[in-house]
Design a binder for these strands. Sequence first.
DNA 1: ATTAATAGTTGCATTTAGCAACTTATTATG
DNA 2: CATAATAAGTTGCTAAATGCAACTATTAAT
Lengths: 170, 170
Amino acid sequence: MVRNKIDDINCSLADSLNLIGEWWTILILRESFFGTRRFEDFQQHLGIARNILTARLATLCDNGILERVPVKEGAKRHEYRLTSMGRDLLTVIIALTQWGDRWLRQEQGAPVNFIERDSGEVIPEVCIRSKDGRQLKTRDLAMVPGPGATDKTRERLRQIAEAWHKRELV
Amino acid sequence: MVRNKIDDINCSLADSLNLIGEWWTILILRESFFGTRRFEDFQQHLGIARNILTARLATLCDNGILERVPVKEGAKRHEYRLTSMGRDLLTVIIALTQWGDRWLRQEQGAPVNFIERDSGEVIPEVCIRSKDGRQLKTRDLAMVPGPGATDKTRERLRQIAEAWHKRELV
DNA sequence: ATTAATAGTTGCATTTAGCAACTTATTATG
DNA sequence: CATAATAAGTTGCTAAATGCAACTATTAAT
């Protein structure tokens, strides 16, 4: 799929989704965080079709999110492990899990709680904060061009800012 | 697709992905955060096929992430707006955008920076924190059954904890 | 009343995913 | 070492999802 074709803003979100936005990919990564490393284990835990799993693991390896390492020194079989790039996705995965807990399981409560290993305390919800630690909402945020902005991006951001003022200040 | 079929852990992540994990959905939500509300605008900004856009907007409305509201009092035409459930996804979207900034645009830098509207300061990276505000990494985290855990979930979490000890303490 | 814009729908081609059986290589076992 | 068992895919086929472009039906503007 070409999700960025006519996109008028060069956005890291679309790029990220091109790497991890395919069916199953995030659940594969969740399994990785759970400690799963072997093909058969991914397949059995997720119930994913074997050919799709093959394809997804290859994409993740090609993009540096997982790496294939020998099961042990000199072994021919390998396993799939998170790279630091992959581990860095944990924030996204936990944020999305917590969103599901909040909105899809209000009655039952979360099936799984993430705790800090040392203290055993449940971690608070991942959220957007200001530099000095205040929690921010959608309305508190705006966007400005960053160092990698193209002209198109600047233009789009200008239009967004303008539309916002029209709607918010009237 | 049935992504949760053989899943042996009842996970909010899989549920979340069933709502927002389809092609295009997250980019549609990004557009919503940018202020886009009308069908034609979504279509033109994203370059998405019209029938797919129709389907995605319907799913998002059905699940309470967007809502259809009349363009103005009494008008027949409507527009699509984020609900509070939808706005609550901003954390995920920013986390994923920032991940893309970090790993896919190391040279150029981020095309878009999120700032706090009042201060103009760029917001820090969304991250996982402990109760007292320390930043946590993958290794600092563990999982325990929450109030909504099933027997299967408990069993799986037990296995994960056991495997972790074997690998980490040797 | 007529036109233009908006918001879809429909039919068809292409791509992607699911399934189950088959293949190949690699470890374990007697 | 031979054989079996496991692991890790591959292949061929079916079903479902997506892309595209043209068409339709409202609604709003003049």
